[in-house]
């Protein structure tokens, strides 16, 4: 699968007088020292966060560089879990999983339907609406935000999850685009064969298209999960009572720099909030890299 391409800049490295085999070996060592070293610098802050989440108050600012604490302060975790204002992280995690789970299912399911419509059915205005959809990708959400807020406020939806979840029932432009790219790669003959066999359009979607675009659906679901799990802005605007807080909001509320005394507990909860992100990354990495490479998108 990997294309055997190498960048010329690197090819002409040093060690020119040596025999080829030896030169390759040294090139390879230089490469791994440089790139690997940079990699460690890049990941150090995250490792430091995890390390510090296990340091006691005596160690946390004195033994700063260490990634592994001298004494493991496991107590930071139950201490942090107690949460804020009498609401524990059990509630925050349930909220976050509900938000990310439902939000993802809503967005991905409706996006798949819309993607099929745009990619496979020719209808009056198809190109026009498709262009509109692509343009919304560049639109700053701020131009819709304020009337939306006023509207939800009048409906009595502020301080509920409705303003966060309901809009996801109407598809998300990026996922629609991603799935369309995938559907376009499926031969039309498959649809036509199914049509001749008497399959309805809904049938074609569920029996032919859906099974074939699973990779695109998984990629979309991963992105949706990440963006929802880490979403801070929408919960910040719409959710006021601590009982409704997501993990992100709770972290922000408990990490007020003026009042924090136990940083170990804050780091513990911060580290914990990244665990679902890393688990998804480890298990679905292939789909993510593929999704970015084929459509090219922010992360």
């Amino acid at each position: 699968m990997e294309a055997t391409v190498s960048t010329p800049v690197l090819k002409a490295a040093t060690f020119e007088g040596m025999p080829k085999k030896k030169r390759d070996f040294f090139n390879s060592i230089v490469f791994h020292v440089l790139v690997g070293g940079f990699c460690i610098i890049m990941l150090y802050p995250i490792l430091w966060l995890f390390g510090s989440s296990l340091k006691g108050p005596a160690e946390i600012w004195t033994n700063v560089f260490a990634l592994i604490p001298k004494e493991f302060a496991w107590g930071n975790y139950p201490e942090g879990w107690k949460g804020i204002g009498g609401v524990s992280y059990t509630t925050f995690y349930l909220n976050s999983f509900m938000y990310a789970g439902l939000g993802t299912v809503f967005a991905v399911a409706t996006s798949a339907l819309v993607a099929y419509g745009f990619a496979r059915i020719r209808f009056f205005g198809n190109k026009f609406w498709f262009t509109c959809m692509i343009l919304t990708l560049m639109l700053p959400s701020q131009v819709q935000l304020i009337p939306q807020y006023i509207f939800y406020n009048q409906l009595g939806w502020v301080n509920t999850y409705l303003p966060l979840l309901v809009p996801r029932l109407f598809g998300q432009a990026f996922f629609i685009f991603l799935m369309m790219q995938f559907i376009r790669g499926i031969p039309r003959e498959l649809d036509e064969a199914a049509e001749i066999d008497g399959c309805s359009r809904i049938g074609i979607f569920f029996r032919i298209i859906l099974p074939l675009i699973w990779p695109a659906i998984i990629t979309s679901a991963i992105f949706s999960f990440y963006w929802t799990w880490e979403d801070f802005f929408q919960p910040l605007i719409y959710l006021n009572s601590p009982k409704l807080y997501t993990v992100s909001l709770a972290l922000r509320a408990s990490a007020d720099p003026n009042s924090v005394t136990n940083w170990g507990a804050i780091f513990a909860m911060s580290s914990l909030s990244l665990i679902p992100v890393f688990l998804v990354f480890i298990f679905f990495q292939r789909y993510l890299v593929q999704g970015i490479s084929t459509t090219g998108i922010k992360g």
Binding site: I46, W48, E230, L251, I266, S270, S273, L288
Partner: peptide, 15 residues
Amino acid sequence: YVPSIVGASVAVAIM
């Protein structure tokens, strides 16, 4: 790629 997937989170901001 790891910093890109966690970069927007509150946890990274605190860190």
